[in-house]
Amino acid sequence: MSGPSPVKIRVEGLFKEFRTKKGAVSVLEGVDLEVLTGEFVAIVGPSGCGKSTLLNCIAGFEKTTTGTLLIDGAPVTQPSRKRVFVFQETGIFPWLTVSENVGFGLFDRSAKERDGIVAKNVALVGLEGFEKAYPAELSGGMKQRVEFARALAVESDVLFLDEPFGALDAFTRLEMRREIARIWKATGKTCLLVTHDVEEALELADRVAVMTRRPARIAKVVDVNLSRPRDSDDPAFRALKDGIFDFLGVERRV
């Protein structure tokens, strides 16, 4: 890396409360996080710690209660094509074909331009030959590839990944992790991943932010200075993993 990258996402003292019949429930209690341009950051934490809510706030889907939330120096008020969200169980549209899904955000381009961008991104995720297929005809991993292609086609510069591999089987999950690592390297997008899988976070991210439940904030950020592709059997990898589990107070042995 040459020189310091500018800050892409800045979160400072972020609070989020949900109003319920029994009163306000606080979900985020003073979250601080900084993501640099082109960086891959993972947020890990136990379920119910608010990490998905945090991602939904950063993506502009949910309003924050107080605190600073800036992307490229501007406050986030609504979702944008510049920053695309990849959903837990694929958010691609089952009523559209693969190409129609990939080109969905390109409605303001000419047909010719759109076809070119669609073809390029279908190729990037390795789905040539499936352009006319409906999602129902694809496997779970292939659907996830369609969603990545759709997110990349609009020339976004940030990808939000909300446990994108949660619904896949163990083998496909491994394959898709390699795939996202490859796409990230090839495109240089800023990636923010939310997962409860510490190993997944360490395999993919430059830095891993660890979130706790009480208080619901980022309690620790771990730098992952390991060369890629990463090996989960590498002692240095295991040491980082043990460190995070110890920090969260999780017993590792079954």
């Binding site: 695309v84 958010g91 549209f93 969905f104 955000g105």
Partner: peptide
């Protein structure tokens, strides 16, 4: 929700949203 949010995220609004997302999703 994920279909509505996907469309929002990709900048699809108004009549296009109604005919391309709302109607087929509810079909």
């Amino acid at each position: 929700t994920k279909y509505v949010r996907s469309a929002q995220n990709l900048g699809v609004t108004g009549l296009r949203f109604a005919t391309k997302v709302l109607l087929p999703a509810a079909m």
